[in-house]
Design a protein around this nucleic acid. Structure first.
Lengths: 198, 198
DNA sequence: TCCGGGAGTTAACCTAGGTTAATGCGAGAT
DNA sequence: ATCTCGCATTAACCTAGGTTAACTCCCGGA
């Protein structure tokens, strides 16, 4: 492991230690995963396909989105530095993924195969815990998002987006934000206009 | 453990075995949890309060709902026989719960304290796995619900509700369903009328 | 038997946000 | 300097669903 491939693992290693993973358990993880560069625009996951890996983003930016039959798309989440990037439900169940994952910037990820992950969880209490904590985190986010979608008006959903993803509004086009908060691009533009005028 | 208190544990025990829990691990669980009867209308969890227990419903019916400042409410889920009943995010983080949980029928649950759960997870790889699987299940549901809220029209959300909770439409008033699928009671009534006319 | 309350229905009206389409505008490529 | 392309804005129109309020139905209790 050299300096270059080392960097993407750093944030992960910290989290692994918090879950009680060390020594042998960590080495086995490093030896069975790899760092990948994902070019801008590439799909990590395609809706309708099974998913065989999970990722951890060490650099870059992804969006998770549902493609609709009519060609439109709904963004449901973004993943940036030091965040998981995964169609977790699909990977856990073996079902085809309901959504796609696209790199919005050139990105660097750590990739782990479902088989490797399963084996780590089988052998090691620590890895089992690590995954439990990761899923917890994903779950809590969804709970929060559900609440926002249900009972915040569109403008407040926009403000919640700004708080949750600070700075992201300057990295992605506005229509991706509109899609994420569940309104049309024109409508978001209208909302922002009215917000500017108090 | 006698026949009466035994019954509520049966479905749980099956799941525990699937996660590799047996012998000592299972006994410790049974000894540190209890069966409770919840009368119709009682709140297991109140929004704004911290949550110290999780439950498994062996009989009865619960709704999970967000109370709004203006007095209205949004249902986000129901739990029936052999299902978890929990404000999991709040219990995991220690934050106050964002939603309340109310028994819609007289119900029977198995109750486990957060400290007991934590200890089981610390001592036992199997219990760690059990919880991981439980959270996975909760997560996958939220993913699905998000998709439905986002891109199904109201009538199809109603039909999805019927599929997900078979028979429930005859156990609860229609306005609870309306709230769950995110429309007003009048609107749902309109939708159903138009559905009847093809 | 009658009364009262909770639930569902229906109708009239209103509004947030969708749709379409035209216009504006900056940034890169030639 | 100009052309183009992708994105944002604005305006005109439309519609799904919210709101309010009457009316109905049913069921349970006195």
């Amino acid at each position: 492991m050299n300096a270059e491939t080392d960097a993407p693992y750093r944030a992960l290693e910290r989290r692994a230690r918090e879950a009680g993973i060390e020594g042998e358990d960590w080495v086995r993880f490093v030896e069975n995963t790899r760092v990948r560069s994902i070019p801008k625009g590439a799909l990590l996951v395609s809706a309708g396909e099974p998913v065989n890996d999970a990722w951890f983003c060490s650099e870059g930016l992804f969006r998770l989105f549902y493609p609709l039959p009519d060609g439109r798309e709904y963004n449901v989440a973004f993943s940036t530095e030091n965040d998981y990037v995964t169609s977790y439900g699909a990977m856990a169940t073996g079902e085809p993924s309901a959504f796609s994952i696209e790199a919005l910037e050139a990105s660097t990820v750590v990739e782990i195969g479902r088989g490797v992950l399963r084996e780590l969880m089988d052998r090691s209490h620590g890895w089992e815990r690590f995954v439990r904590l990761a899923v917890e985190r994903l779950y809590i986010r969804k709970e929060e998002r559900e609440r926002q979608l249900l009972y915040l008006p569109a403008l407040e959903r926009y403000e919640a987006f700004l708080r949750k993803y600070p700075g992201l509004d300057r990295r992605i086009p506005q229509y991706h934000i509109a899609s994420y908060i569940g309104v049309s691009p024109v409508s978001l533009s209208r909302l922002l206009r009215s917000r500017r005028g108090r």
